[in-house]
Write a protein that binds this DNA or RNA. Sequence first.
DNA 1: AGAAGCTATGTCAGCGCTGACACTCTCAGC
DNA 2: GCTGAGAGTGTCAGCGCTGACATAGCTTCT
Lengths: 354, 354
Amino acid sequence: MNAGLIVRSVTLDDVAAIAGVSAKTVSRVVNNDSKVSPETRKRIQKAIDQIGYLPNLAARSLATAQTKLIGLFTPPSNSHFFSQLVRTATRSCREKGYNLVIEECDITCDSAALVYKSGLRNLRCSGIILPAILCDDMDLLDLLEVDSTRYVRIAPATQLSRAPYVTGDHAGGSTAIARHLWSLGHRRFGMVTGIPAAASTILRRDAFIKTIIESGGSLSDFDIIELPHLLDENQGPAPLSLVDAGRLAGQILLKKSQRPSAIYTYNDDLAAGIIIQAHNMGISVPEQLSIAGFDDSDIAQLCWPALTTARQPISEIAMQAVEILTSSPCIPHQAIVCSTELVIRQSTGAVGKD
Amino acid sequence: MNAGLIVRSVTLDDVAAIAGVSAKTVSRVVNNDSKVSPETRKRIQKAIDQIGYLPNLAARSLATAQTKLIGLFTPPSNSHFFSQLVRTATRSCREKGYNLVIEECDITCDSAALVYKSGLRNLRCSGIILPAILCDDMDLLDLLEVDSTRYVRIAPATQLSRAPYVTGDHAGGSTAIARHLWSLGHRRFGMVTGIPAAASTILRRDAFIKTIIESGGSLSDFDIIELPHLLDENQGPAPLSLVDAGRLAGQILLKKSQRPSAIYTYNDDLAAGIIIQAHNMGISVPEQLSIAGFDDSDIAQLCWPALTTARQPISEIAMQAVEILTSSPCIPHQAIVCSTELVIRQSTGAVGKD
DNA sequence: AGAAGCTATGTCAGCGCTGACACTCTCAGC
DNA sequence: GCTGAGAGTGTCAGCGCTGACATAGCTTCT
């Protein structure tokens, strides 16, 4: 390691001296400006390669007041949905010449605005991606607007016209799942919902219930568990993973005297937990219990039996978010709704005679 | 969105003017320098809060030639091991006042040095975390040293004394798994290895084989599949996930006339794939087939039956890596080996009468 | 021929911060 | 009273780059 060793880095001026032009012209070449003659361009390019010039992003940021950094908040219990989101966002950023910076925020203990203030904020990202829940923290949105930082919301619940957002068709996916389960003959349902503050939680829950009731069911056919209740029950030091939360929910739901024949969960991670719990209790899936999730994240095909779920186009959501943040000029109130699609796998089946 | 609107940001000078001191003194307060009288400090702090001063990291980077950014390379098929690594690294960076930037690199198609050059390089990260495989790309290491960028390797295979590294005890974990399987009566083994260029692949494989042979087995008791072979077979456009690769490996291994009674894989993701494939083929685990992985990443407890595996302290590895990069002064050739631990779960059992 | 318009390039201040160094007090020690 | 040390603060250049503007050398049109 040569840390400590002083290395004056190669600058525009060095290149300029070699190529016999001004630094500004080199800058033009580096930034692909037009209005540079082909010969000059070639000569400069040669000089750049020769001494291995590397633009200094800090200097550029300072001069342009543009960092080319995209910030992304993630929740502490990482679902598979988020892992995929992070991955695709990384790739999209790169394609557009930006870099992705990750920030973790547990809204159950910290205010998102506070986390932002003490962390990402003075990085002055060019744009910020705010996933569900976080994106409904009005203090945070205010703060971002004060800083005039661009941001995009993923699945916002409130003030939809305030800023651009991307979301999946939560209601549509839920409706499809409900129809599917009903048509298989299920009449008694367990549900595990997400965090109530998230729009997706409400939309997925309500669409499901509404569809069942429209089909002929009633509200008394449901056993509903809310995710926060599960998280609260956790004794351990580490936050409960969503899969573990699902397992816990399974313990509760499957012990009921009137056991549901189908369970629908807020996302695939929770559903995976239910499947595991069913295995542990000797309940066979899908013969004795059907389970459906949401997202179609990696985990869906990793369960056994593989999970019936509503596919959200996670990669597309991430790409669109990055696109919105990096488009120039910025389009004020873009709203993109990605459609969801029912994916039937082996975790759901016709209702059996228990 | 007020992009486009010109907002001269609040600077040190603004604060200085209000507090009636020089910008330098404000800088001292912001950076927690000693040698500022308590009263002055208080007065300045008040001014800072009053106008909401926010240090400009780009300017600071330019002045100090220090970006306080840590870069982390990830492979394209994200294993659970990496998801966890990313998460913990994010947290560790934050605690130390750094930010984490992710870069994806598929060494099967691109040279790591090239990816670095075209991406992370001109961000001039203060430090770079290089996971296995990547960290044995000597071109990349050369490049980093030319730039005098600090880096830390995770599980390097070659030139161990070249730079600091963190690694798990691959051989130890593998040996423990081998002893465990042998003691359960297994005598015929399937193996799925990792990418041969990685030290971990070789260490895990060789320790396993050596232990079995020492126990009385012979080389002819093994059926070995190498990960790259599986990846090559993939027709689809998207790269094969490790779980899918495991499934594929299962298809091959479990069709053999002399079917192994136990399969040991390079990591948990691959093992999960094998379990799924066993389910699909109606082979019961662990009664008819024992399966063991490596890492004890989240996926291990997400399988059913839960996976017997060798736990690597992933969080500790990430924390140590960040620690090495951020410690000051930098310690030249630190080498940290984290111990691994056998975790016995339900995917392994005594060999049955098939 | 002169005006007008273009293209290709140069000049220079300044983005916000910090390191090196200078300066002014105060106070202890002789 | 003088010296030296140290604490507290200020001055200023310069990190590497780009935006705004100026300039030089063309061509084209009137």
